[in-house]
C-alpha cells in the first residue's frame, strides 16, 4: 500500500513539475481540460441522481395510487354505506396528508374524478376533500409567492366548489399584475357565479387571447343556461379580441337576434374579426348581411378577402345576384392569373 501511495506521489510530482515548466498557453489548456472533466463528471452524477429520484418517486406514486384509487372509488360509490366509508377514508388520509407524495397523488385522484363526475359521486368527492383537510393545503398554496402554485390552489378549490373559502385571499390576489393569475381567478368565479363573472369583459382593454377564450368557452359549456347581459357591448367593443370572444358566444349559443351587431363587424378594422363575422353570417344564413358584404367587397383591395366575400355572397343569395357574382368571379380569376404570371416571371 505504501509503495502504491509513493508511486502516485511520484506521478503527481512529475506532472506538477512538468506543468510548471510548460508555457502559459499549455497551462491554460490543461486547466481547461481538467475543469471540463470535473464539470462533466458532476453533471453526470446530478443527472443520474435526478433520474433515480424521479424513478423512485414514480414508483412511490404508483404504489400510493394502487392503495388509494380503489379505496376512494369504493367510498364514493358505496351506496348506502358511502358516508361511513367516506369518514373512515378521510381519517386515513388525514394521517398521511403531511407526506407530500401521498397528498399530491390523492389530490390528483380526487380532482380528476371530480372533473368527470357529477351528482352524488361528485358530492362525495367534495366531502372527502374537506373532511380529510386537503382543502387546507390548497388554501396554503394561495399564500405562496410563486404565481404558478397560487394558480394550482385556485384550480383545486374551484374544481372542488370551495371558492368561498378563498374569500380572504381574493382581494389581495386581484391586485396582482400577473394577468395569468387574474384570468384563473375570473375562471374560478365563472364556474361559481355563472355569466355574471364575465362582467370584467365590459372594460377589458388588454388582449383576451385565444387560449383564455377557449378556457372561458369550455367553462361556459359546463354551466346550465348562462346569460350574456352585456353581449351587445362586447360586439361593439373597440377591443378586437373581445369582438372575437363575443362572436364565439354568438356562434355557440345561436344568438341570432344580434344579427345587426354581427353585420356591423364586417366593417371592423381587424381582419380576424371580419373573417369571423363572415363565418357567423354564413352559419346562420343572415340574408340581411347582403348589402354590408357587397359594400365590403367593393371597397376591399385584398384579393383573398375579396374571394372570401364573393364566396359568402354566392352562398347567401346566388339566385338574385347570379350575373354580378359570375362577372366578379371572372374578374378575380383574371386577377389571379396576372398575379401568378408576375410571380413566375
Amino acid at each position: 500500500m505504501e509503495a502504491f501511495l509513493g508511486h502516485i506521489k511520484e506521478v503527481l510530482n512529475f506532472v506538477y513539475h512538468n506543468f510548471l515548466n510548460e508555457t502559459l498557453v499549455v497551462q491554460v489548456v490543461w486547466v481547461s481540460i481538467v475543469l471540463f472533466f470535473f464539470t462533466f463528471i458532476i453533471s453526470l452524477l446530478v443527472v443520474v441522481y435526478y433520474k433515480r429520484h424521479r424513478k423512485k418517486a414514480k414508483k412511490e406514486r404508483e404504489k400510493i395510487l394502487k392503495i388509494y384509487q380503489p379505496l376512494i372509488i369504493k367510498a364514493i360509490a358505496g351506496g348506502d354505506k358511502a358516508l361511513d366509508h367516506i369518514n373512515v377514508l378521510s381519517n386515513q388520509i388525514k394521517k398521511v396528508k403531511h407526506k407530500k407524495c401521498h397528498r399530491n397523488t390523492i389530490l390528483s385522484i380526487i380532482i380528476k374524478l371530480h372533473r368527470s363526475l357529477s351528482d352524488d359521486l361528485a358530492n362525495n368527492l367534495e366531502q372527502i376533500y374537506i373532511l380529510s383537510e386537503l382543502n387546507k393545503y390548497s388554501l396554503k398554496k394561495l399564500k405562496n409567492k410563486s404565481w404558478n402554485i397560487k394558480i394550482e390552489g385556485i384550480r383545486e378549490l374551484s374544481q372542488m366548489n370551495c371558492i368561498q373559502s378563498m374569500s380572504k385571499h381574493i382581494v389581495k390576489m386581484f391586485t396582482s399584475k400577473k394577468e395569468v393569475l387574474l384570468f384563473e381567478l375570473r375562471l374560478a368565479f365563472l364556474k361559481n357565479r355563472g355569466g355574471e363573472a364575465l362582467n370584467f369583459v365590459n372594460n377589458y382593454k388588454n388582449d383576451f387571447n385565444e387560449w383564455h377564450q377557449i378556457e372561458f368557452m369550455e367553462m361556459l359549456f359546463n354551466l346550465k343556461g348562462p346569460t350574456f347581459e352585456y353581449i351587445d357591448n362586447w360586439l361593439t367593443s373597440q377591443n378586437a379580441s373581445i369582438n372575437l370572444f363575443a362572436l364565439k358566444i354568438v356562434k355557440s349559443y345561436s344568438l341570432i337576434d344580434k344579427k345587426n351587431q354581427i353585420i356591423n363587424l364586417v366593417k371592423s378594422k381587424n381582419f380576424k374579426v371580419r373573417r369571423e363575422a363572415i363565418r357567423v353570417i354564413l352559419k346562420f344564413k343572415i340574408k340581411d348581411a347582403y348589402p354590408a358584404l357587397l359594400s365590403a367587397y367593393e371597397f376591399n383591395d385584398n384579393y383573398f378577402e375579396k374571394r372570401r366575400l364573393l364566396s359568402a355572397l354566392k352562398t347567401l343569395d346566388f339566385e338574385n345576384f347570379e350575373n354580378y357574382i359570375l362577372v366578379e368571379q371572372q374578374k378575380l380569376n383574371q386577377q389571379f392569373r396576372y398575379k401568378t404570371i408576375t410571380i413566375k416571371s
Binding site: 372509488i73 369504493k74 360509490a77 380528476k112
Partner: peptide, 9 residues
C-alpha cells in the same frame, strides 16, 4: 385510470 376503475367497479 381512476375513472376507468370506477366504471369497471
Amino acid at each position: 385510470s381512476s375513472l376507468q376503475l370506477l366504471l369497471k367497479f
